[in-house]
C-alpha cells in the first residue's frame, strides 16, 4: 500500500474529480438498468433488486468522494512537471499498446511470434535496451514460456492461422 500511495500523490485534484464523476455516472447508469430489469416480481425479489442496491450504494459513495475531491487543495503549477508527465504517459501508453497488440496478435500470429514481437517492442522501443539483449530476452522468453505452458502444463496455445495458411 505504501507503493500505491506514492504514485497517487502525482495526480492533481482534477483527476480525482474526473474519477469520481465516472463512478457516479456508472452508478446512475446501473440504477437505470436495474430498474428496467425489475426490482420485484410475483412476491419475490426480481433480477434487478441486488444490482439496484449495489448501484445506489456505489452512487452514494461516489458522490461523497466527488464532494471530498472537490474540496481538495489545488496543486501549484510548479509542482507538476509537464515534460515528465508527457514522458510517463507515453511509456504507459506504449505498454498498453503492447498488451493490446499481444492479445490481438495471438490468434493470427500464434503464441511464439506474438510473444517475440511484443517483448521486442517493449524492451527495444519502450525500455531502450540494445538489440542483442532485446533479441536474446525475446527468444528466451518465448522458448521458456513454450516449454512451461505448452510442453509441461499442456496448455493449448494458438499456432497462428497466418502460419497455418502459409504452411498447409
Amino acid at each position: 500500500m505504501s507503493d500505491e500511495a506514492a504514485p497517487a500523490s502525482t495526480v492533481s485534484r482534477r483527476w480525482h474529480v474526473l474519477g469520481f464523476v465516472v463512478f457516479t455516472a456508472a452508478g446512475f447508469y446501473a440504477i437505470g438498468v436495474a430498474l428496467q430489469l425489475g426490482l420485484w416480481r410475483q412476491n419475490s425479489p426480481g433480477e434487478g433488486l441486488f444490482p439496484f442496491i449495489a448501484a445506489v450504494a456505489m452512487t452514494a459513495f461516489a458522490v461523497a468522494g466527488l464532494v471530498s475531491a472537490w474540496r481538495m487543495p489545488r496543486r501549484s503549477a510548479a509542482a507538476a512537471n509537464r515534460g515528465d508527465l508527457a514522458q510517463t504517459l507515453i511509456r504507459v501508453a506504449a505498454y498498453i499498446f503492447g498488451l493490446v497488440f499481444y492479445a490481438l496478435a495471438l490468434n493470427p500470429l500464434g503464441f511464439i511470434t506474438s510473444t517475440i514481437v511484443t517483448v521486442v517492442f517493449i524492451l527495444r522501443f519502450a525500455e531502450r535496451y540494445s538489440w542483442p539483449v532485446t533479441l536474446a530476452l525475446a527468444v528466451g522468453t518465448a522458448a521458456g514460456c513454450q516449454i512451461l505452458f505448452v510442453i509441461w502444463l499442456g496448455a493449448i496455445l494458438p499456432f497462428g492461422y497466418l502460419w497455418e495458411s502459409l504452411l498447409y
Binding site: G98, Y102, T115, T118, L123, E127
Partner: peptide, 17 residues
C-alpha cells in the same frame, strides 16, 4: 524493465488459457 515483459506474457497467457 525486464520483469515487465514476463508479467505481460504470464498475464496474457493466463487469461487466454
Amino acid at each position: 524493465s525486464i520483469l515487465a515483459p514476463l508479467i505481460i506474457v504470464f498475464c496474457v497467457v493466463g487469461a487466454y488459457t
